[in-house]
Amino acid sequence: MINIRNVHKCFGDLEVLKGIDLDVNKGEVLSIIGGSGSGKSTLLYCINAIENIQKGQIIVDDIDVHAKKTYQDKLRQKLGMVFQQWNSFPHLTVLENAALAPRIVKKLSREESIEVAKQELEHVGLGDKFDVYPTKMSGGQQQRLAIARALAMKPDYMLFDEITSALDPELVGEVLDTLRLLREDGMTMICVTHEIAFAREVSDQVAFFNEGIIEEMGTPEQVISNPQKETTQKFLSKVL
C-alpha cells in the first residue's frame, strides 16, 4: 500500500507539489492526468526516492521513503518504474537488459536471472528477441522491454510516466495492451498518462493534477465522465 500525506516539493523557489494526499491499495490502478508542468512526474520521482521532499510523508508498505534510515536502493526494488524515454541499455542484448538488475542487485545466479528475464520478456511478447540489441527494435518494443526489465525485479508496484507519449501512434496500442495484461495479473500501478480513454478503461481511481495540487479525484466515472470542477472540464475538453 502506498500512502502519500501532505507532500510538498520545491525546486529552489518553485513549489511544484503543494500538499498532495493519495492512497493506493494493493491491486489498484491509479491514473494521474493533468496539464504539462502540473507535477505528475515529480510525484512519481518522489515516490521512488529519486527526488527528495520538503514536507509531508510517503509510506510504501510501512517504509517511510524519505526517512534518513531508509535504504533507498533497497526500496527501489519494490517500485518498478518506466519512463517516457525507454532508456534501453544499448550495450546489452534484450535478454541481458532484463537480466542485469536481478543478477547484480538481487544477487541471483546467472541462470536464475536469465530465467526470470526470459519469463518477463515472453510475458510482454518479446520471446523472440532475446539476442537482439535494443537499438534495432521499434520504440514500442523497447518500451515493452523497459516494462519487462522492471518486472524482472519482481516489484510490488509499478510506476509509469507517460510511457506512450514518445511513441509513434501505431505503436501505442501494443504498449497499452501490455499494461492491460499487468492489470489482469493484479499488479498495483500508478500511471501518469495522457491517454484518457485508457485511463477511464483500466483505472480504479483517477487523480486530476493542476499546478501542484489534486484538483479532483475519484472513480473514472466521477472524474472523467462527470467532472465537477471547471479546471477539470476544461482540461478534458482539450485532450478528449
Partner: peptide, 9 residues
C-alpha cells in the same frame, strides 16, 4: 535514473 530505479547503486 532508469538504472537507479531498478535498484542499482
Amino acid at each position: 535514473i532508469a538504472a537507479r530505479s531498478l535498484g542499482m547503486s
